[in-house]
C-alpha cells in the first residue's frame, strides 16, 4: 500500500531512497508534493497548511526505521496522521435516553433525508432497535413524502406530522409518540440550510435544545471543495456535533472534505454513504479514506 501513492508524490519520495534519516531537504520537496496532492483532493487550504506543518514537525530528525526508506516513512507519517484526524478507530453509535434521539443537519442536497432513512435501517437491522423516522423538514417541497416513501421501501415507520407546522412542534410530538409507542430511537431529518441563514440556523439550535440528541450528525457531500471549512465552522460552532456522515462516496471524488470537516469540527467521520439504495451505508473507515485522499 505504501508503494502506491499518487505518481508525482511517488517520484519525489523515490529520490529519498538510501538516505539514513529524514533531513530538511527531503522534507521540503516531499511536503510540497503532499501539499499539492491534498489540495488536488479538495482538502481545504487552511487545513492543508496545518497538516503539512504537523507532518514536518513529526518527521524532522526522526530515525528512519530500518525496514523503510525515508520516502516510505514520510508516507507512513502522513497516512497515520490523516487516519488519526479522520477519526481513528470506528466508534459505536451512542444511544442514550428513551427514546434516544438522533438528529441530522447539513447544507441543501448533501443527502440528509436519504441518510436518515439508511441510518434508521442500519439501527433496525444491525442493532435490532425499534426506530421511528421523523420528518422535520418543513421547507423543501415534498420532503415529508420523500421520507415517507423511503420508510415504506425499507419497512420503517415514519411519524405522521399532518397538522404540525414547525419543526419544533414536530420533534416535541415525536418524543411523546416514541415514548408512548415504545420506539427506542428517533431519527430526525431536518431541512437543508445554508450556514449563513441566521433564521434557519437558530431554528436548528431550538430543535436540538428540545431533542437533546445523543448523536448529532453533520451530513457532508464527499464532492465538497474548499467550502467544507465554512460549513464545519458554522454548524460545529452552533451545535454540539458528535460526528459526520460523508455521502456520495460511490463516486470518484477523492473526498478531501472529510479531512477538512473532521479537523475543523474535531468530531470523527462516522458513516459513509455509498449509493442511493437503502443498504448503501456503512461504518466509515478512516484508514481507507486516508488512502483515497492520497490517491493510493
Amino acid at each position: 500500500m505504501l508503494e502506491a501513492v499518487s505518481e508525482r508524490l511517488q517520484s519525489v519520495l523515490k529520490k529519498l531512497r538510501g538516505e539514513g534519516h529524514i533531513t530538511e531537504r527531503h522534507l521540503d520537496e516531499a511536503l510540497g508534493e503532499i501539499r499539492r496532492a491534498l489540495l488536488a483532493a479538495d482538502v481545504a487550504l487552511p487545513v492543508v497548511k496545518d497538516f503539512v506543518a504537523r507532518v514536518r514537525e513529526k518527521a524532522l530528525g526522526q530515525e528512519v526505521l530500518t525496514s523503510l526508506s525515508p520516502g516510505q516513512q514520510i508516507t507512513k507519517i502522513v497516512h497515520d496522521e490523516l487516519t488519526r484526524l479522520l477519526g481513528g478507530e470506528a466508534q459505536p453509535l451512542r444511544l442514550k435516553g428513551f427514546p434516544a434521539p438522533i438528529m441530522l443537519v447539513g447544507l441543501q442536497g448533501t443527502g440528509k433525508t436519504t441518510s436518515a432513512a439508511k441510518l434508521a435501517l442500519f439501527i433496525r437491522q444491525k442493532l435490532g432497535k425499534h426506530v421511528l423516522l421523523v420528518p422535520a423538514d418543513t421547507q423543501r417541497p415534498a420532503a415529508r413524502e420523500q421520507l415517507e416513501q423511503l420508510g415504506r421501501q425499507m419497512g420503517l415507520p415514519v411519524l405522521s406530522t399532518h397538522g404540525e407546522s414547525s419543526p419544533e412542534a414536530i420533534v416535541r410530538n415525536a418524543l411523546v409518540e416514541a415514548r408512548r409507542k415504545g420506539f427506542e430511537v428517533v431519527v430526525v431529518d431536518t431541512a437543508g440550510r445554508l450556514h449563513v441563514d441566521e433564521e434557519l440556523m437558530a431554528e436548528l439550535e431550538r430543535v436540538a435544545e428540545i431533542l437533546q440528541p445523543s448523536e448529532l450528525f453533520l451530513v457532508a457531500d464527499a464532492m465538497t471543495g474548499q467550502d467544507a471549512v465554512r460549513q464545519a465552522q458554522a454548524f460545529g460552532g452552533r451545535l454540539k456535533l458528535t460526528g459526520v456522515i460523508l455521502t456520495k462516496l460511490d463516486g470518484d471524488a477523492r473526498g478531501g472534505a472529510a479531512l477538512s470537516v473532521a479537523s475543523i469540527t474535531h468530531v470523527p467521520v462516522r458513516f459513509a454513504g455509498t449509493g442511493e439504495k437503502p443498504g448503501d451505508f456503512e461504518l466509515f473507515h478512516p484508514d481507507r479514506m486516508a488512502s483515497r485522499i492520497l490517491g493510493m
Binding site: 457531500d221 465538497t224 471543495g225 474548499q226 467550502d227
Partner: peptide
C-alpha cells in the same frame, strides 16, 4: 453544478 463542489466538478 453545485457551487460547493470541489475539483470533482471538472470530471
Amino acid at each position: 453544478v453545485d457551487a460547493t463542489t470541489g475539483l470533482n466538478g471538472l470530471v
